[in-house]
């Protein structure tokens, strides 16, 4: 990895340079929270945002997208090629970069490549930025607190200046053109180590660090805990709507009012939706909150690990805030902590 250092005062020039060639998406204030949105000026960007309600996922997997158009009268299908806007998502935290990397594993799986996803992802640059954990963050417990790959630039705030990790030639050229990047000095490296330590020390200590979570998930599959947790689910799907790594979708045809033209669309789905596991004939494999919430937690903390050797949950904390019923992977970690304490008694 190549590292350079730029002054904080050079950031506006970097963003301007991106804006010349790309649509720039960045965290902005939105009501009392924050959201990734297209920005027109560096001044709109909130570099030290805690988290956003939803994640940058929406730019690679939109909540609703057209797959093709059809004409029901003529029984014809027209390939639909959407103009993909070349974008830079600026100011992405490590958890969300890891989330995009996980989505890549799913949608760029060579066996089932997804051309719609790939077109957007190929046209998207990612500029990461260091963060200070908020109360609900636990990326450090699911090995997602550091982005090792998946970005074009990563900006580490080391006090008045940024240590920039460079991940792509394209981004390096833009950095070079817009700023005066210099070699990192020993002093910069020390500042980096301090910043990293400060961050590590600021994670919420009330979220338990549990070893071997996937194994524990298997061991406690039938515990009454799942009834207690899932029994309070509101079936609202807020969890999957905010999650940076939920990738389930539904496909449906939407007719124009003229009854002739229509669109085949892909929309986000969620395993916490009551109908998610209904199959032909009407049987519902997960007919209650217990089964649905347990399934969601298994996919996040166990199933994806088995298939891809990494946690699907990146510990971003969004569902911790979005779930009004207080259901999140943190509750699962707390359950394992209680179990551990029980065993010790």
């Amino acid at each position: 990895m190549l590292y350079r250092v730029i002054d904080a005062a050079e950031l506006p020039a970097l963003v301007d340079a991106f804006m010349e060639r790309y649509e720039v998406i960045a965290p902005v204030r939105s009501g009392r929270s924050f959201a990734f949105e297209a920005v027109g000026s560096f001044d709109d960007i909130v570099l030290d945002y805690p988290t956003t309600i939803t994640s940058p996922k929406k730019y690679v997997l939109p909540p609703r997208e057209t797959l093709f158009e059809f004409d029901a009268a003529a029984n014809e299908v027209a390939d639909f090629v959407e103009e993909v806007t070349p974008r830079v998502i600026f100011g992405v935290h490590a958890c969300d970069i890891n989330a995009l990397n996980s989505l890549d594993l799913v949608f760029r799986d060579a066996r089932y490549p997804d051309p719609y996803y790939a077109a957007r992802r190929d046209a998207t640059m990612v500029v990461g930025i260091s963060c200070t954990p908020s109360e609900g963050c636990f990326c450090h417990l699911v090995d997602a607190d550091e982005a090792r790959t998946g970005y074009d630039l990563f900006l580490q705030d080391i006090g008045g200046r940024y240590l920039v990790s460079i991940g792509s030639v394209e981004a390096a050229n833009i950095l070079e053109g817009a700023c005066n990047p210099r070699e990192a000095t020993d002093e910069d490296r020390i500042a980096f180590r301090h910043a990293t330590r400060r961050r590590q020390a600021s994670f919420n200590p009330d979220i338990p660090n549990i070893q071997e979570v996937p194994m524990l998930m298997d061991a406690f599959h039938s515990d009454p805990f799942w009834e207690e947790l899932g029994g309070r689910c509101l079936s609202c799907t807020a969890c999957s709507s905010v999650c940076p790594t939920c990738y389930c979708f539904d496909i449906r045809d939407t007719m124009d009012p003229d009854g002739v033209h229509g669109l085949r669309e892909r929309t986000w789905d969620a395993c916490t939706s009551p109908q998610f596991a209904v199959v032909a004939g009407g049987h519902n494999f997960r007919a209650d909150g217990r089964n649905r919430v347990r399934h969601r937690m298994y996919h996040k903390l166990n199933g994806f690990m088995a298939a891809h050797d990494r946690n699907l949950c990146v510990g971003c904390g969004r569902c911790v805030y979005a779930c009004k019923a207080g259901i999140s992977p943190i509750e699962v970690l707390r359950f394992f902590e209680r179990k551990g304490a029980d065993d010790a008694d």
């Binding site: 309600i53 509101l234 799907t237 709507s241 496909i251 449906r252 969620a270 939706s273 979005a322 009004k324």
Partner: peptide, 24 residues
């Protein structure tokens, strides 16, 4: 008139509210 493959889910509203990127 034509049938439809669209699901009619019974989930509650908050998921749509989050897709609108609204706080609570």
């Amino acid at each position: 008139l034509r049938g439809s493959n669209k699901a009619v889910p019974t989930s509650t509203l908050c998921g749509e509210c989050k897709r609108n990127e609204r706080g609570c």
